[in-house]
């Protein structure tokens, strides 16, 4: 269960403080899938980053199960990401120096939950069996995003966070990747929180919410 309560975040800019989140609230049940939409600058990515423990909130609570993420220090948040959360970004953000196979296994090995058979299944279902020995820059955009999703799911996280995962892909590829993601999420039973601009992609998820001026509506 993910619970976000009265979350606030303000960035300092040369032009003065810029409030991005102004008391955001959100509840997401185990195994639930939710798409978060909103205009540019509405705070979607910021909320996702705070839930992932990539940044610290100014006020409010973020609970994943019994853990209050907002109260954790930097090292504890890193540990949380490593063991319980998977993150997928629009830019894929694969590790350029490692092969596809090593990228896929990276997070699971880091968390100490590497499972050979699950890894094989993931590789096969993501259609990456033939490119395991290649490096990220030798793959197409769609293939790279599938590696990023595989990496995030390889450790069987409780929560999968995705930020515009299909933003860099064409519509057809994007929808295919999305369908694959949802299948695998269902297979692992993890909770999915996705940030997207696309109404059609959002429509593929169980719930949709909209973020407007720092609040979920």
């Amino acid at each position: 269960m993910l619970i976000v309560e009265d979350l606030h975040k303000t960035y300092s800019t040369p032009q003065g403080p810029l409030p991005v989140l102004r008391g955001a609230n959100l509840t997401l049940g185990d195994g639930e899938t939710l798409a978060m939409m909103g205009d540019s600058g509405s705070g979607k990515s910021t909320l996702l980053h705070l839930v992932a423990g990539l940044d610290a909130a100014d006020a409010g609570t973020i609970r994943l199960g019994e853990t209050d993420i907002a109260a954790l220090d930097d090292a504890a948040r890193a540990l949380l990401r490593r063991n319980r959360i998977g993150v997928v970004f629009q830019q894929f953000n694969l590790i350029a120096s490692l092969t596809v196979q090593a990228n896929l296994a990276f997070q699971a090995k880091l968390a100490g939950r590497y499972d050979e058979s699950w890894q094989s299944e993931l590789t096969e279902r993501l259609g990456l069996s033939d490119v395991g020995a290649r490096y990220p820059e030798q793959l197409s955009g769609g293939q790279q995003q599938r590696v990023a999703i595989g990496r995030a799911l390889a450790a069987r996280p409780e929560l999968l966070l995705t930020d515009e995962p299909t933003g860099n892909l064409d519509v057809e590829t994007g929808e295919a990747v999305m369908q694959l993601t949802l299948d695998l999420v269902a297979r692992t039973g993890c909770t999915l929180l996705m940030v997207t601009h696309s109404a059609s992609i959002a429509g593929m998820l169980a719930r949709q919410v909209r973020l407007d001026r720092g609040r979920l509506v």
Partner: peptide
């Protein structure tokens, strides 16, 4: 930074 950020996102601290 682009090489390091994914590792940070994956759960390695900045110190590490």
């Amino acid at each position: 930074l682009p090489q390091l950020a994914p590792l940070w996102a994956g759960g390695l601290t900045r110190r590490k």
